[in-house]
């Protein structure tokens, strides 16, 4: 206990055991990268990019889409899709219980949120992974919602955008989860056949089965700054090759350097950049947003 805290009479001391928190929950929050104390409302106005160090704080899937779509334009897609424990999988805990815990924690049914809406006036179908839900891992429910969203894009002749953040395949669904990679990729092939553009925005972190399928298949791949993106996690690689990994290995900047993403875009610019790109790639002329006429 610090000398300062000792001065406070014990009956009004509020520390809760060992758990040390830099800042109280609520109005204030802390940047996980530079530890700066930030005013939450201001941070949210800044798309949850730390104003001090430009760190892009991880977003839940729903919040991600909330920032992406124009206010009150999102209609959810595939909200009925629920996960199922087909293999009756059990490790130290039952998969069924893990699902219930994750649903309780996030308020979502599974790790993908989908919807259609407008982005600076451009109609789009977009999906976003939720890393808080079992590491954003892809099981059958995620694969199905992704495919159903691609269907919606094809039926309505809309472009498709995905925000990826995932540890990869969902272990507890074993081969069924592996095959979601094939399923989502095949759905994207249909989108391509229909002549509709697909942009994938890779966010921190994107690994394994998600990176080796839908996330790397964008007609345009955009990465957020300093996101970690790769096939195998750095720890496993280090154990396999027994070498220290090069500086900046598997960061967005590394992927740009090696030619696997088209650009790195600051989160605050995403709506502008994505809508500008989509307007060029969408075959049918997009009705101009009235703001553009005003200029």
């Amino acid at each position: 206990m610090s000398w300062f805290k000792k001065l406070i009479p014990s009956r009004i001391r509020t520390d809760s055991g060992q758990k040390k928190r830099g800042v109280p929950e609520g109005v204030w929050t802390q940047c996980p990268a530079c530890q700066a104390v930030l005013y939450r409302a201001e941070l949210q106005r800044n798309y949850e990019v730390c104003p001090k160090c430009e760190h892009h704080i991880r977003l839940s899937g729903r919040r991600r889409l909330g920032y992406f779509f124009d206010a009150n334009t999102m209609e959810e897609i595939g909200a009925y899709i629920e996960p199922e424990d087909r293999l009756k999988f059990r490790d130290s805990k039952k998969y069924k219980d893990r699902l219930i815990a994750a649903q309780k924690k996030t308020g979502e049914k599974d790790a993908l949120i989908a919807g259609r809406g407008l982005v600076l006036g451009v109609p789009v179908v977009a999906v976003a992974f939720d890393f808080n839900f079992i590491g954003g891992s892809m099981g059958a429910a995620v694969g199905e919602k992704f495919a159903v969203s691609v269907d919606a894009a094809i039926q309505n002749r809309l472009p498709f955008v995905c925000f990826s953040t995932s540890g990869g395949a969902r272990m507890q669904e074993a081969v069924i989860s592996l095959l979601q990679m094939a399923k989502t990729s095949a759905a994207l092939a249909q989108l391509g056949q229909a002549g509709l553009p697909y942009i994938c925005v890779l966010t921190d972190p994107t690994y394994g089965g998600v990176s080796a399928s839908l996330a790397m298949l964008g007609d345009i791949n955009i990465a957020e700054p300093r996101a970690m993106i790769g096939f195998t996690g750095p720890r496993v690689i280090e154990q396999t090759v027994r070498e220290t990994l090069p500086e900046g290995f598997q960061t967005s900047e590394f992927l740009l350097e090696h030619g696997f993403v088209d650009m790195i875009t600051d989160r605050r610019q995403l709506q502008t950049v994505v809508s500008r790109l989509l307007k060029k790639f969408t075959p049918t002329p997009v009705v101009k947003h009235h703001d553009e006429f005003a200029e």
């Binding site: 095949a186 096939f231 690689i237 990994l245």
Partner: peptide, 23 residues
Amino acid sequence: PGIGAEERGQSEAIAKNLLIMSQ
């Protein structure tokens, strides 16, 4: 799972095959 494999896009190479093989 190697350094070179990551540098040369292991993810992209696999992903591309999934897409191509479906068609």
